[in-house]
Amino acid sequence: MSSKNDAKGKAANTRTVRFNIKRCDGPGQPSRWERFDVPVQSSSAGSGSANVISCLQWIAANPVTIEGRKTTPVSFDCGCLEEVCGACTMVINGQVRQSCSCLMDSCAPNDGDEVTLEPMSKFPVNRDLFVDRSRLFNDLERIRGWVPIDGTYDLGAGPRETPEQQQQRYKLSECMSCGCCLEACPQYTLEPDEKEWDHAFVGAAVISQTRYFNMHATGKELAKQRLDVMSGPGGVSDCGNAQNCVKVCPKEIPLTESIGSVGRQTTIHKIREFFMGR
């Protein structure tokens, strides 16, 4: 569990990766670029590949730019480092993804390779690569993203479920609210003003969660309210079907199927409402 590395060994299996990082000191502040040269160990010794996180940690401990200027450590958001919490999402070489699963072995395999890091552009920047995704959680609240149970006291088991439906729900439930689908969506826009949140497009993650909750026997109880949101401004009909969401989803959630499904649900919901009243 300990790693021994003499100076000679280090030189042999270390390469330098140049990081171009878009930095910003706080909301409303201008952004600037800073460059860092980070030594990266090759992963041959069974130590695992370096990733963007380990490189950012290295920069935090050695915050000096390539010009030799001392700067502040780069702020970024991260948590589990194994792609289940969704925190460390950022734009790497122009594409949104989790930085923990961006391994140097694959994204910068050679000495001198460059890696560009930017914060997600669809969320307000707190600082550097650290953004504020509260809108996403706010939208989950808007669609009533929960199963309305009677309380936490012992009332027996939940509804039975076929393995097929469980597999379908499980896949949708893996959504970690990372925001990749929103960043890549041409219809999802940056809305720093909370007042806009109620009618700006909610994006694939929230549409998919709507489907998830509407699939559950008890969750269905709130389906009408959810579909009211989904058929309103910013709902599913604002989707432009570019389908980038499903391509960038790290959990391979069938987001476009969810969009189709919620599309159908809103169609039926509105036709029913038209003929039968609310």
């Binding site: 149970i149 012992d154 009332l155 027996g156 088991a157 939940g158 479920e161 076929t162 439930s173 559950h216």
Partner: peptide
Amino acid sequence: PKIIDLLDRMGVPFNRTAEGMR
């Protein structure tokens, strides 16, 4: 066992058997 039941009611997608049991 009661905690499992509760989580089940909350909608946790526990893996299922062919008969639909947990």
